[in-house]
Design a protein around this nucleic acid. Structure first.
Lengths: 139, 139
DNA sequence: TACATATTTGCAATTATGTTGCAAATTTTA
DNA sequence: TAAAATTTGCAACATAATTGCAAATATGTA
């Protein structure tokens, strides 16, 4: 397990450090997306706030995690599926945010549909976030 | 012009004040969505930061403007079309963010398509943001 | 393994962003 | 026009994010 994570770091030409292992491990075990604050709280042996910011940024640049544009404009991160490469992401799946429990979930199998834009607009990337109740929370 | 804005405030049972007129006027003349910082910079006779926060909040509650969930998680606001009423918005249109000029534009005529969610998920509201080049910026 | 080099971390300081209470100013109502 | 209601601006505070730099850690190589 920890070995797989190490490999992932090495594969992406990153030094293997405790902070990185710990944060990456969190993502692999998290039920949904993680915010900076979640990571800060969960970290067993405390990781500096700044290190967390920098780690998240590096992971994003390397295509290991992606940010999720939630409706309330809070920043959350989730693991990318394998297809993301350094420098560009291919995160074309829909994200779901539960209004009850707040969990943010990647619906990896639900692709963002294409829309027809007005003349002149050249689309590059689409994001879609659906709010509602997740399978655990609907009454 | 200024008259129409005054009417809008009155129609929504809000006192007519300089700050509100000025901010609302900005929205009517802006090429795209506005962030808090944009308004702070543009304000000719300085409006207090706090007043801007409160004005935006009030406008949103009254259904005059809506927030836009951009991919970079910055908060932007744009005018609602007429159908929004106090308390609930009907902003089911796609938003476009230009990667070149940064403008954020409401595509009022492009509706957010429905997607089929995995079993158990109960959708409530959908948001869609498309990044790319706007009609002014594509080469 | 041990050392030199490169990278990463943690701290302190700084800046940006957002909120709250309250008195003064402005707007509305009558 | 005066009283009541609302809004504004200030000060203080809280939280979130960024930067520079020295110390600590990790990596590559002999």
């Amino acid at each position: 397990m920890s070995e797989a994570i190490k490999e992932l770091l090495k594969k992406n030409h990153m030094s293997v450090t405790d902070s990185r292992l710990q944060i990456l491990d969190m993502f692999y075990h998290a039920p949904g997306a993680l915010a900076h604050a979640d990571i800060e709280k969960k970290a067993s042996d405390k990781i500096d706030r700044v290190t967390i910011y920098r780690t998240l940024q590096t992971f994003e640049e390397k295509g290991i995690i992606h940010t999720i544009p939630t409706a309330d404009n809070s920043v959350k991160y989730a693991l990318c599926k394998d297809q993301c490469a350094e420098g560009h992401h291919h995160d074309n799946h829909v994200h779901f945010v539960c209004d009850q429990c707040g969990k943010t979930i990647c619906l990896d199998d639900v692709l963002v549909p294409e829309v027809k834009l007005p003349t002149g607009f050249q689309p590059q990337q689409s994001n879609m976030v659906v709010n509602g109740f997740c399978s655990d929370c609907r009454s």
